[in-house]
Design a binder for these strands. Structure first.
Lengths: 329, 329
DNA sequence: CATATTGCGTGAACTGTTTCACGTGAATCT
DNA sequence: AGATTCACGTGAAACAGTTCACGCAATATG
């Protein structure tokens, strides 16, 4: 280093290169500058080991090349994968990602937003649970899986279409009386449309169906209880079940087997998410696959480039069906 | 907002409160200040909706309250969990976390370090694979699972002890000829000590053992081939296997079963990591459990407070054994 | 040949904090 | 009562960039 071990500044580079401060700035911002000057600056910078100080830059230019991601946690593989893809997509665009984990606590979510408003990021991608998250109007925000407001882009899978697809699949596989089961947060969100899609398909096609919704606070036991009540002499009232998530489907399957109902022989099961077991890369169950990578890339694109005709503020990305052993294909 | 929608600054707060700039600064830095002044400032700040600008602060104070985490990816649940705990620990200390994902590419790792050197963070926690990562001497760095240099703290599980523990467990469960199997990166790391611990225990206790190491590029098939070669008429040459990771153990188990060797009846299996299946919260196999949360918290603590007598620069955190169905308990 | 236009390097001004030397008034000491 | 601390509020300077009005020279235009 040059003097006193302190990191070199643009001023040092300017002196070393024998040019003005503004010229150095231009070089580092890809603003056209005479070729000879450009070379002088670049060589001086390399000689000094100069790196721009992002804080000074952020202060003046109000641009940080940082995006915040707000997530409930990383111990759910869906969230982890989402974070992975978002981080990679941001890196591709030369952005960094600061990650905030909220454990789905609305208080923590609000705290994150406030922290980010301290000029910490150019924008936010959030997967939040607070019912009334107030997002600063001039802080670009893209929400995943939850509609927050008309001016806030919201990206999700085509939950409605996925629900329809699940119903259609069950019916086409021979189910006469399908059931929709969900358990999750009480806060309304896009994922609720999975059930709506299922119900709509059944109604439009005159299928006899049932739908039962549970809240997190009721616990999975209430689902088991429901299943027990609808099981008579080893025979379930339903011959197909669409569960709102893969992991939930897994629990349902385990419970059914424990009370003597075979999957997929007695009842066929379809989940939602498209998660794969880390150990084998197989699906947990037959499932509606969310395009996680596409969700991530779309969220990043819209955050950085804004919504457009091609990328409207409200996008439902196409899902697909994948058999996973819990259906009779 | 006050004027022209621009965010209020300390100057605005000072004017609103009728105090000097420095006083406002002190209030926001918890530097003692007369009670009446403190109240005046706090009320003015609230009225204006003032938030400190972290970039100005970072510029001046050379303190960013940001730590970077460098990880290969998040699709491995071990890494995801580690990131989760590190993020939570940092939040507890009022730090933010910027996450960089490298996909284990040394080139990407170096790029991350360089990016962070642009004053983006006060320190780095890295789980890297580059053999020759050059870390700036005055950028605090804590490495996980890889020894980088004498001046760079390195946190890991007690891999050696865990290896011994696995060997001891297998022996105490009746194994007469245990085998150690590993597959992984060629870059040396702390995790290599798992095998060393295993071997040491066997040698010290006069146990007949074997140890076989594979590299990632050889592929899991080479492990299968090895197992096939050591299996005669449905009987394996070994009655216990210690695998370097849980997921690896899972594959070994599956393959053994596919060639007619029963786990745990014919051969007992112990993995390393302590991962749980996301769907059931059960271990994948009998395993040596890494204290992930403690690793995370220790890494954060050392990064923020520096190494000390209580927290030396090289720490191996105690592991524990947990049965997971692949041993005859 | 004179004037207008263009291109481009220059450096002062500015961004919003923290820090520190300074000054003021109150409290303590002799 | 006068001198000496002490406590603490003050505001200018500094941090390291970006931006922009300016000026100079070279080229284009009439």
């Amino acid at each position: 280093m040059n003097k006193a071990g302190k990191a070199p500044t643009m001023k040092d580079v300017a002196r070393e290169a024998g040019v003005a401060l503004g010229t150095v700035s231009k070089v580092f911002n890809s603003i056209p500058v005479g070729e000879s000057y450009k070379i002088k600056v670049e060589e001086a910078a390399k000689r000094l080991g100069y790196r721009v100080n992002s804080y000074a830059r952020g202060l003046r230019a109000d641009k940080t090349y940082t995006v915040a991601l707000i997530l409930p946690s990383l111990d759910n593989p869906f969230f982890a994968l989402l974070a992975d893809h978002i981080c990679v997509a941001l890196t591709k665009h030369n952005y960094r990602m600061v990650l905030a984990i909220t454990k789905a606590d609305p208080h923590a979510e609000a705290r994150c937003i406030r922290m980010i408003e301290q000029n910490m990021a150019d924008g936010v991608i959030g997967l939040t649970y607070a019912a009334d998250l107030d997002v600063n109007e001039n802080l670009p925000y893209v929400s995943i899986d939850r509609f927050i407001g008309p001016n806030i882009p919201c990206i999700s899978s085509d939950n409605f279409g996925g629900g329809q697809m699940a119903a259609e699949k069950l019916v086409s596989l021979g189910c006469k009386k399908p059931l929709f089961l969900r358990i999750g947060s009480d806060v309304p969100g896009e994922t609720d449309k999975r059930g709506a899609g299922f119900v709509t398909y059944c109604q439009m096609n005159g299928i006899e169906y049932a739908a039962q919704r549970f809240s997190d606070w009721q616990g999975i036991e209430s689902v088991y209880k429901f299943l027990d009540e609808h099981c008579h002499r080893g025979k379930l009232d339903y011959d197909g079940i669409f569960c709102s998530t893969d992991l939930f489907a897994y629990h349902v399957k385990k419970h059914l087997e424990s009370i003597g109902v075979c999957v997929p022989e007695d009842v066929q099961l379809i989940g939602f998410d498209g998660l794969k077991r880390p150990e084998t890369d197989e699906f947990y169950c037959s499932t509606i696959v969310q395009p996680i990578q596409q969700i991530a890339e779309t969220a990043v694109y819209i955050l950085l480039h804004g919504a457009s005709e091609q990328f409207p503020g409200f996008m439902s990305l196409p899902v697909s069906y994948a058999p996973g052993g819990t259906t009779r294909e």
